[in-house]
């Protein structure tokens, strides 16, 4: 039973990985990656890593893949163009990949480690791979990596928002809303909008200093782009 499940999941993982690399339509490639991740989580279950398997399904298939599919739909693009580097360069890449398989295979399977031929200890404790055990390890032995990982996630979330934010200024609806708010706001509150000169422009303010030096400041550049954006929206 173990062997059958292993071969089903392993072959599915390899075939889906090959599909991810060779399918021309990016959308199908991403869906193939979903199949690959699901079969990997089945392999994790065979290795008694229940928690990792569930996290794999929830984080990858549930969150990361949705992100991929949405960005794929947003960018569009269809099939990627043929040619480019030329067939010889492509063949060279595949040759490198085959060399990599052979090298890793020799390195891993030819180590002479006897444990590699066995399937590990049979009398593993019931707590092996359980959420409780992993939580205990994360909060005792691996506390510093755990905190570093959470900080990394925070930085990545902020970085993604900064990279992908809209740089075209305010939309018409937002402008009206801001104008209503401005009536309530006293002058010189030191808000961020005031700092960039969006409200209460001051002669020697931040925007007055920034705009001439950089040539195309933040606001003129966003005005240029509004024409393009309406065209992008209809796409």
């Amino acid at each position: 039973m173990d062997e059958i499940l292993f071969f089903v999941a392993g072959i599915a993982a390899i075939v889906a990985a090959a599909g991810t690399v060779f399918l021309r339509n990016p959308f199908y490639a991403v869906l193939s990656l979903v199949v690959h991740l699901l079969s990997l989580s089945m392999l994790f279950l065979l290795l008694y890593a229940q928690f990792v398997a569930v996290v794999q399904v929830m984080v990858y298939v549930g969150a990361v893949m949705v992100l991929y599919v949405f960005v794929n739909a947003y960018v569009g693009g269809g099939s990627e163009p043929e040619g480019g580097g030329g067939p010889s360069l492509r063949m060279f890449s595949y040759a490198i990949a085959i060399t990599l398989i052979v090298t890793i295979g020799i390195a891993v399977l030819g180590t002479g480690l006897q444990a590699i031929d066995g399937s590990g200890p049979d009398d593993i404790p019931a707590s092996f791979g359980s959420p409780g055990e992993i939580g205990k390890l994360l909060l005792t032995k691996f506390l510093l990596p755990f905190e570093a990982a959470s900080f990394l996630l925070l930085v990545a979330a902020i970085g993604a928002v900064v990279l992908a934010r809209r740089r075209r200024g305010v939309l018409p609806g937002e402008e009206r809303m801001v104008a209503a708010l401005d009536l309530l706001a006293p002058t010189g509150t030191g808000s961020m909008r005031e700092g960039v000169g969006a409200i209460n422009p001051t002669p020697g303010g931040f925007s007055a200093r920034i705009t001439p030096s950089t040539g195309a400041g933040t606001l003129p550049a966003s005005d240029d782009r509004t024409g393009d954006d309406s065209e992008g929206g209809s796409r």
Partner: peptide
Amino acid sequence: MSTGWYLAVSAIVFAIGAA
């Protein structure tokens, strides 16, 4: 299943990803 089989699958998938 022995660990070597899992490592073989891992090596193949890694090389496919590199390609």
